[in-house]
Design a protein around this nucleic acid. Structure first.
Lengths: 332, 332
DNA sequence: CTGTTAGCGCGTTCAA
DNA sequence: TTGAACGCGCTAACAG
């Protein structure tokens, strides 16, 4: 592997000059620049990034910590982050937190130990205080899917409450009044917010929130099945269900179908997230669009702007939107 | 940020000794080790990985190149790779190839330039020759989802042909004889192999392969819809369809449902991959299990074994298995 | 078992 | 505009 020294020899210049042409410093004459470039080319020279990082104290790498890598949710986000960063020759190092505070902290430490220039975090178990403290450290952080007032300028998030509101309002406008709710885990912020939105819509339309028609799952399909069974067994009458994400909606619908119920004729459903599956489900799922890939992109752009001083536009607040398909219909 | 020097001073030992305790070299007395550990602790010392990499010429990082990050396919694979490697304190740098030769090569160069210790590649556009040449370079590579004879010891793959065979045989055993096939892109190796398996089953059961009942999609849902429309419009009679992956099966089924057909009563379907969606589809999808996450894990273990000399067991060939659900039934 | 010393490859003053 | 020299933090002989 050729080094900067080899290049300098071949080009007949000093190390410093080679370094200058690499770093696009303009105080190099065109003639020498050309000589150096040719020498690099001839040697197939590739700078050693570790030496660069060691000397410059900048790694051009970003640590990305997500809750999970499988599932329909994080793939699109990671894809956008990778792409946006890659365009600027930065690379991403991934770590997984598994929605567990200990693992999240461990992963942050791991990435920090790896010398990343910044952190993009989609974490849910760790406390606000921890993140606030972290944000005061030397390594910049950006938060996706989380709003923390004191560091709101580093938060990229969806207005989850509004989404919950829109989902339920849609059903109310279709004439439903007895609406069940399958929530996400009570500890998760987004789950709480979505539920609050649901309740607001109910109140606004003069329907009352019945706690016995609200059960919590874990955002996965299986829990959608279980929650639906529970609701059905409760004996309480209801004609529609709002699910805090599409995966649980999928499970819930499949539980109904399993019993021979007709969907949406006998039960209306609204999901949340608009994962690809929603378009091909049967019936096609009415849901709330969650522009998770956009948020990933914005997190990357935020860093490009604030850390690497690129001139880009970044949005940080995203509005959920209702996507009407065919899983929810007028109450009969 | 404390350095190894600070630690050595505080502990009253030399740099080398500190380095030894970090690298778990056993030739350090318990007493000094303890002193050093305490000093590290007190200083909140964290080794600088760039300096380590520069000095040791080993980065403890693995480059992972996949075709895409979104979609149901690569998430589980990445998750296993990350987890397995992380247990040994290695980290993962990701890049995306978009099934495009130029981008794949570009990504390989990018990762190599990043000084990764090895490469895990799930690539499809690049030629066998390129990969063979790459494998002769200084950076070890492991291939997922691809079999190349001259470097087969670095290949982790699924017996795709067998899967195609099993899918079609299942339908043949259910009495179907006119079986359509929705294939993946003709250039992709796995798509070719799956199709060959389909044809072998047909031949074995004395059914003939009708090219006009075989159309190719791009592995995405939408193309499943389009292919199904095309088959239906062809006028040729058929009672079952094998799809080269679950996503296209999902699209194909939704196209039938859209026309008011009853599935599986009027048309049987078998998919391929067994993505999570398959379990919650309506009807539940009969498919071929593709242990993609296992393959990811094995790729990681392969490196742990051959590169980092860990003592682990690795399997490299995976057998697909039929998963019977309810999208394919006896021919009436 | 421990310390000394010489790099690893590059960025960055400071002079010239 | 260019070059010499030092230092980034750590590993790996080699010596003792």
């Amino acid at each position: 592997m050729a080094t900067i020294y080899d290049v300098s020899q071949l080009a007949g210049v000093s190390l410093a000059t080679v370094s200058r042409v690499m770093n696009k410093s303009d105080s190099v004459s065109d003639k020498t620049r050309k000589k150096v470039l040719e020498a690099m080319d001839k040697l197939g020279y590739r700078p050693n990034t570790f030496a660069q990082s060691l000397a410059s104290n900048c790694s051009n790498s970003i640590g990305v910590l997500v809750s999970q890598l499988d599932g329909p949710y994080y793939g699109p986000m990671m894809a956008e982050i990778e792409e946006s960063l890659r365009l600027d020759n930065k690379h991403v190092i991934i770590a997984v937190g598994h929605s567990n505070a200990e693992q999240e902290i461990d992963s942050v430490e791991f990435l920090l130990g790896r010398g990343v220039d910044a952190l993009i975090l989609d974490v849910e178990a760790v406390s606000d205080e921890y993140l606030i403290a972290l944000s005061k450290g030397p390594t910049p952080i950006v938060l996706i899917n989380r709003y923390i007032e004191p560091i709101k300028e580093r938060c990229i998030y969806l207005e989850n409450e509004l989404g919950g509101y829109l989902a339920t309002r849609h059903l109310l406008e279709l004439g439903h009044r007895d609406i069940a709710y399958i929530s996400g885990p009570a500890k998760k912020h987004d789950a709480q917010e979505r539920l609050v939105g649901h309740q607001r819509a109910l109140t606004e339309y003069g329907a009352r929130f019945d706690p016995s028609l609200c059960v919590a799952g874990d955002y996965k399909e299986d829990s959608g099945v279980a929650c639906m069974e529970q609701l059905l067994h409760s004996g309480k009458p209801f004609t529609a269900v709002v699910c805090a994400n599409d995966q649980m909606a999928s499970g819930a619908i499949s539980a109904c179908l399993e019993r021979g119920m007709k969907i949406p004729q006998e039960m209306s459903f609204v999901g949340y997230d608009n994962i690809p599956f929603a378009r091909y489900a049967v019936p096609k799922l009415t849901t709330i669009n969650n522009p998770i890939h956009e948020m990933g992109k914005m997190a990357a752009l935020w860093l490009l702007k604030h850390l690497y001083k690129k001139n880009v536009q970044v949005d940080s607040v995203f509005e959920p939107q209702l996507v009407v398909r065919s899983s929810a219909i007028q109450k009969v």
